[in-house]
Design a protein around this nucleic acid. Structure first.
Lengths: 169, 169
DNA sequence: GTGCGATAGTTGTGTTGTCAACGACCTTCC
DNA sequence: GGAAGGTCGTTGACAACACAACTATCGCAC
């Protein structure tokens, strides 16, 4: 019944595929830590902040509803509020109320934010290429992407009931 | 020179491989969130706590030096102190000073901790299999593992100078 | 054996995230 | 047109982590 835990008794053989899972976790942890460190050191931006600026820059009009931004940056609604707070305090983003829906707020990229992003993107993309894209063989990378897309599809299917939030999309 | 950022000008074509990177980040975020939620809901354990218990269970004598545990669970030294604090408070782990090195502390798994781990492992491993191992084709999974191992090797090589801590393995 | 740099773990403090509760607003249906 | 119920974003309270500073101990040169 127990599966992986070392038992004093004979001990069941663990699923040999579990090494892949551990590799996945470790690679992600170390990779994001390294990239985050580099980005902070050279441009004073966290990975999440960089990502938010990037999403805004790519959006039409360089502006996005808070909730849309939250989804793209993988943050909760309250998390995006606070992230945008910081970016506004640093002059990289401006907040405005949505014209078509008075409940809503929009974040828009300022000139300073765009400049900051441009500068940072050089460093960041170089890191992503060096540590990730250029390191993995092309077909391995494609296999990985294929596999992980299926993982995400699987997560969508087995939607966890409904918590009003972040359930799908 | 700018690479990915949407420019008003012609806009450089972004590296097409960048989608793989984003997929990697999203898959990890959603996967760990799902597994963490499930583990908390069914057994009141976080992923980090589960991992710590597992590492202890697999260690000889079911005990480990704090710093070794920190490395395996991918936590800082202070992070592991506090995590073990919580586990001790819950009676799953005991702390003892190391006999051979009076500076050192050891964490050892209690009977209750082992039982808790065993119960949780059923749930957790089922999740890992369902969402990850069984979802990805075997050869894709192996390709991914191969690629990510190379990523980690690459990170080791380009060691970030030296910060005394967590630099290598 | 004594002094000194390195190492182990803990603690104070700050950062960044979550969840639950809230107010403001939209929508729909009567 | 006005109540009922949903959605949007913010806030308060809190959890979990990192870093830096600290204490205690080790190991070694001398």
């Amino acid at each position: 019944m127990t599966t992986d835990v070392a038992t004093h008794a004979p001990a069941k053989a663990a699923d040999p595929r579990l090494g892949s899972w551990r590799t996945f976790l470790h690679a992600h942890a170390r990779l994001t830590r390294r990239l985050d460190d580099e980005l902070r050191a050279s441009h004073g931006l966290s990975l999440a902040e960089y990502d938010a600026l990037l999403q805004l820059a790519q959006a039409p009009g360089r502006r996005l509803r808070m909730s849309v931004l939250a989804d793209r940056v993988l943050l909760s609604r309250s998390g995006i509020t606070r992230l945008v707070d910081r970016l506004v305090a640093d002059g990289m983003v401006e907040r405005s109320t949505c014209t078509t829906d008075a409940r809503g707020a929009e974040a828009s990229l300022t000139r300073a934010g765009l400049d900051r992003l441009r500068a940072a993107s050089t460093t960041h993309l170089e890191g992503v290429r060096r540590y990730f894209l250029d390191t993995i063989a092309a077909d391995d990378r494609q296999a990985m992407e294929r596999g992980l897309c299926q993982v995400m599809d699987g997560l969508d299917d087995a939607a966890p009931a409904s918590s009003q939030d972040r359930a799908d999309a």
